[in-house]
Write a protein that binds this DNA or RNA. Sequence first.
DNA 1: TTAGGGTTATCT
DNA 2: AGATAACCCTAA
Length: 777
Amino acid sequence: MSASASKVSSLSDEQIINRWGFDYYVFKALSAFRDADYTAFTHFTSIIENLVVRPVDGHSDMIVKLRCMQFLSRINNGDKLDLTFEEPKTPLESAVSVLESICRDMSVPPREQERVKQAIIETLIMVCLRSGEFTRAEEVLLRHFSDAEDSAGKKKLFESLIRRRRSSHSVLQLSSYADFKQDMLDFIERLYRVPEPFLLQMLKRSGHPGVSSEPVTSSSQDRQKTSAAAEHHGSVCACLSLHSLRQVYGVLSERYGVSVSFTQLQQELEEEQEQEESPELHLALSETPREQPEPPYAGMTISRLVQEDDSQLSTAEEEETQISSPHRIVIPSGPDSDDPEVRTPVRRSDTHNHSSECSPAQICTPARHTQKHNRIILSSDVEPEDHATSPPSSRRSSRHKQQQKSDHSESKCVMVEDDGGSSAQVCSPARPSSSSSSPAVRRSARDTQRQSRIVLSSDVEPEDHATSPPSSRRSSRHKQQQKSVHSESKCVMVEDDGGSSAQVCSPARPSSSSSSPAVRRSARDTQRQSRCVYDCTSSSQTHTRVCLESLSAVSCRIVLSSDVEPEDHATSPPSSRRSSRHKQQQKSDHSAGESALVSSPAHPSSPASVRRSDRDTQNQSSESECVMEVEDGGSCVQHSTPARPSATDTQRHNRSVTVSSESEDHKSSPATQTPRRRSSPSSGGAHKRRRARWQDVSGTHENWSDEESLFSATSGRSSKKYSRKMWTVQESEWLKEGVRRFGAGHWEKIRSSFPFTGRTAVNLKDRWRTMLKLRLV
DNA sequence: TTAGGGTTATCT
DNA sequence: AGATAACCCTAA
């Protein structure tokens, strides 16, 4: 327990809250997908992508969720052959890879696995046929198509279509890509039912109107009760062991100036209980800190306190804890609850045997930290009446679930659950270290992430795209790019092929004035590092059902960022870096444009274009600091671009950006982070990957490289001997986290503990070696 | 599986 | 051409 406790204690507020956010957005992403609102889905996955770069309290089910998101993102973009999530693969082939990972992790029945895989392959073949990619269709057919008898007929049909170069056939028309998507979603949902996120529960509890989520665990009546009590603050319950509670009490009492000892309080409570049934006891009885200004820490902080307390338990206490049944502490802080109340538990019944290892504590924490009074309720497993807005049964079941979870997960911890029964777990990830992303990293992230970010998203779904040949699309994009290159305007114009366009004035600008060194350095933009992600979307298009042909929805995202360069940076590195920077500066000096005009074609469906043709990207990239991503229907990846304009912009390509045509270029500004970011080049084929990655050399901060983003597709494929797949910031973060948890050398273990795709243990080892070399760790 | 040296692909 | 991140090969 102590181990777990310490893990828990090491969680930062950011990790916990990010976890809540993560759960929430995963939930929302799935809902959006279910509603066929793929634009929203990509937005959510984009948020998730960004979120996981930050320190997050991760535990086992986080990986499952990430896998699901990866899978669905690939499915969502599966009809865009030019997109790639993993180098040589089409999105659907990547989906198969992810499917395999999912099946490994979750023990999916072989039949189901086979069925899903077959569905994906068939769809892929149909997508290839529809777009006239017969060679690729044949390739897929030969390589992946099931030899099972029942699919023999289809195989023949496909072979025939390929042979005859037929891209239209009743079979192809009958199958709808949208249906396929929903089928895949069904598969995911059958496999893993995402529980109602903690944040949503909190909101529900707070009585917020209009909140309804599927898994409604509590009755409306209950909810009303709850809301009345919580008054918009919501409350969370978590399992706490008695000793933990004691510790929390100690902290709180100290803070509030309560002189009554815990033991004393307990006695009072017991007496009180004897006298009346109501298990609630007001701390006020003993002494209440009513008027004391409340520290801004309610909910989360409290939970953290608990965690910390846990961590501090002595062995004896731990034993005690184990023996004693868990108690529940409810700290709803509602305005109404002026005084902290403590309820003594009625003896806890069984609660959890499971929990023995974790000695779970239930804490109800107020949603808001600003609340003034906290009420502490100690209860046995039996839930106190008030608490409970939710019927006992439901609660129990939820708890049960939690227990199950805890059993499965490695978390040792503190569980937070709301009355409604759904629960959020705040656990220290099994992995001890998960919690702590390396300080350095965090720090760096922080530094680098000061940038403000604005996201506008618009999705335009041009119908023609699908039909129009890639080449044409490409050319149009090309033109646009050229435009952008030439224009020095400060606005970024995003336009989709369909003609709709959005202009973005570089926002950043607030900081433009600020003279961060980086900024200064940055080439064209002297502006500072604010980072804006701009998405132009045709607003009206939410909830659009995307059909195969209309999948072309595009979301353009422009990221304007100015990089603040960490100082270490400057100091640190390698001369080479310095020199490169120097060059960049020079370039920047030369560059006149503060902004770039980028027109990105929405071109959704045309993948090829997406792949950023080298030239396009090159030109553009050089121009602005802004990164614009255009994604088809898809997932958006965000790239933070360092302010610095890319030095050699032309040469740099963001591979990841694949999706975004011109925008990518922008991103290219690499820079500072990795000492030299190179994207791969272009030289040869348009398809080579390019990527711009910015990593802080000093290790201070890293940004995502687009291509590797979890959910977004990236660049085109390179046909070379091996494609050089640059490491994304996220992957590097996982690696760091893995090393923290398991230690260097346990590459295979680390690899299997994070959703790496296309990385071998050796790759991890090599990357670690590189990171060490670069002092990124 | 991992460690470590060699090779390749890119970028400057 | 030099530098270097990513990748490959192989011994242990």
